[in-house]
């Protein structure tokens, strides 16, 4: 039961954190030019954004869940299941970020998910 809970924290924490950071980066707006100074200013702006500050604890919770799961179960069990985060991420992008996830993108996401699971198991 605790393993299921930790897997939930692992998957939802990492995708939730990335979705929050992605939303924060979009709210900031893309850097005007790809120069080191502009990029540093942009990163500073994203890091002071509330969405970034929400994303970091979510990702930290996911990281600690991963460490605990690694101490209980083999890598070949944890990583293939964590590949589900690609599907959860696509769902989050569609319903939370209102992105247009068409059939080609769904098929791509499912293939990547299966591929990552196989690479980790192999």
């Amino acid at each position: 039961m605790l393993t299921v809970l930790l897997l939930f924290v692992l998957i939802c924490g990492s995708t939730g954190g990335e979705i929050a950071i992605s939303h924060g980066a979009k709210k900031t707006g893309e850097p005007k030019r790809m120069r080191p100074r502009e990029l540093l200013v942009f990163i500073g702006q994203v890091m002071s954004n509330g969405w970034f500050l929400l994303g970091i604890p979510l990702m930290a919770a996911s990281f600690f869940a991963l460490l605990i799961l690694f101490s209980w179960h083999p890598l070949s069990f944890v990583i293939p299941i964590s590949a589900l985060s690609y599907v959860v991420g696509a769902l989050g992008a569609k319903y939370l970020l209102k992105e247009e996830v068409n059939t080609a993108r769904w098929v791509g996401v499912l293939l990547v998910c299966a591929g990552v699971a196989l690479v980790a198991a192999g």
Binding site: T28, E99, G108, L110, V112, V116, L118, A120
Partner: peptide, 29 residues
């Protein structure tokens, strides 16, 4: 072999996603 199959599936998946529009939402500007 299992890992090679995984790499093959990932590559096909990435190519498929790469065919779609990189941005489907409005940007901040």
């Amino acid at each position: 072999t299992k890992r090679w199959i995984g790499v093959f599936l990932i590559s096909i998946g990435v190519v498929l996603v790469g065919q779609t529009k990189p941005r489907t939402t409005e940007c901040a500007e």
